[in-house]
Nucleic acid binder design. Sequence first.
DNA 1: CTGAAAGCGCTTACAG
DNA 2: CTGAAAGCGCTTACAG
Lengths: 351, 351
Amino acid sequence: MVAGSKRARGGSGRVKLEEVARKANVSTATVSRAFNEPDKVSEEVRRRVKDAARALNWIPNAAGRALASRRTHIAGAIIPTLDNEIFAHQVSGMQSVFSENGFTLFLGCSNYDPDEGLKQADAMLARGVEALAVVGESHPPELFDALNSRGIPYVVTYSYNKASPHPCIGFDNRAAFRRMTDHLLSLGHRRFAGIFQPDTNNDRVKERLRGVSDALSAAGLDIAARDLMMGPSTLEFGAESFATLMTRTAETRATAIVCGNDNLALGALMAARESGLEAPRDFSITGFDDLAISSRFSPGLTTMKVDNQQIGVLAAKELLAVIAGEQAQVQSREIVPVLKLRQSAGAARGR
Amino acid sequence: MVAGSKRARGGSGRVKLEEVARKANVSTATVSRAFNEPDKVSEEVRRRVKDAARALNWIPNAAGRALASRRTHIAGAIIPTLDNEIFAHQVSGMQSVFSENGFTLFLGCSNYDPDEGLKQADAMLARGVEALAVVGESHPPELFDALNSRGIPYVVTYSYNKASPHPCIGFDNRAAFRRMTDHLLSLGHRRFAGIFQPDTNNDRVKERLRGVSDALSAAGLDIAARDLMMGPSTLEFGAESFATLMTRTAETRATAIVCGNDNLALGALMAARESGLEAPRDFSITGFDDLAISSRFSPGLTTMKVDNQQIGVLAAKELLAVIAGEQAQVQSREIVPVLKLRQSAGAARGR
DNA sequence: CTGAAAGCGCTTACAG
DNA sequence: CTGAAAGCGCTTACAG
């Protein structure tokens, strides 16, 4: 007995739609409709098909479906790193919204390397993502070109920038740090220092530094280069930087330290405690993020809170609306961080 | 002029392999080979094909490729939540290894709901994941059945259990907490309390509690039901629980508090500070995870460290090895947590 | 080394 | 409401 087909291709071994059709005694078209457009199939046939599918334990092959329908029900997110809970929360929000809507999420981390981000975006595009969310704007133009040329909806998250050419859902980093610095100025501080994470390939940090400068220069002030510490976003670097800043003479030493995030500020506060210094008596300090520990710490850390999960949720919803054709493009959305005034920043003393 | 084909199907509009073939003056088979099996194509033709592809900005359609080759180059990971850095680090490790090997990663979060985990796993299976990593063993049997019946390699991460029917890469939660409890016993403690996260659908927490019981019962001890606090894994719950435990009379009050993780222990330590109590003078306490802040905190927290990124890396490598056919199945691997002895746990006083 | 063509598992315009 | 069949964009056994 010779095999029917000249070209044997093996097959996946998985049960396929055709077998369901045979068992239910209908055409393949009807099986497909029973699942995808149930209204177009009579109730009795629908039942027969679903029973057959269940009995055979059939799961549709997504590649076949995607090829025929040109839909994948896949979305993607590219973030700098999961080692930062800020982005983790964002992904978490996106993931749940996408999942509720039948979408599965690809996750890529660039590790702050734009080329890596582009590589992962390309991989996702090749796999047919129907939408993409990327953190921040520091990406190669090729990334946005690829998205635009294929008409794939996307959104820049975390950063919000009125002047951005991209739809974005997030907050204005510059305005936030201007506001925080203004707060310190209003407390009477005139000598400032900064402890920040690296701004390489990071538009958010650049904007934050600009915000600080905006506020200071409006008051005729600035941060001396040697008083702006930049390094890894760890408790250790925060602690070291604080120690260094405190070696300045009393007359030149900053009374207010603006930190790029809570982790750095917390590190500084821990170093302070070890050296017998105390905020706000001896200095004032601020963070950003409002980590769970920041309000519980002693002294409570003055900082700003952004609902990152919410950013993820909004981003996913916007993308889904565009995919569904409910709106032509993603609507930009500005989130306003909440200022949390606590004990770590107080009135400037003894000038 | 009538269209050539009777059944117009639109097409995706994207440039396809066929156009590359036409431009390079070769067959579609050759284009495919030039990319997937370059050795089988002469250098000159290979160049021509790649130039044509670049000029047309062609990106292969993954659905077509997947359908024909029955490979998707997609892997999946299902974790309880990203709101916990432990799992975030694990995903981070997996993601980078998969990415380096040309795999894109689906991410799903169950939020500690087994049905949700199963739903996401099904979605991933439908989309053709070639391998799956799931945290822990608390999943519906259907999940493992689906994996096994299709021969899709998978691994249980984070938990390691010699008796498990599944390949697993992680640590023995029970042994770890037995070890920690033994340490406290060796310091002379005889009255114990516990502050733990909920153990619903969470085999890790169940094992941890068992580990504590193992050690205590070997010493003829146990934790009274009212001294075992279980609740959300927050600083707040840690703090509240500590306060409650300290309301016991001096004669019955626990001298050692075993916490399910660092967060709970840190919350307790903060509450202690506020009420003027101090470890190890007034009580001893231990955590698990060794968060960045745990070593910097005062007192330093005695805890255990697990390299979660490493677990993710190992899991991904094992899965890739099976996919590549280098080994028949995933090799289980036990990671041993490192005990970090610090100031929060000291000798028992005044009994 | 290269090509013609079958086939992967679905969906959907067309016809009834 | 239902079916026959073309087509989605690739890969790969076969033949040369």
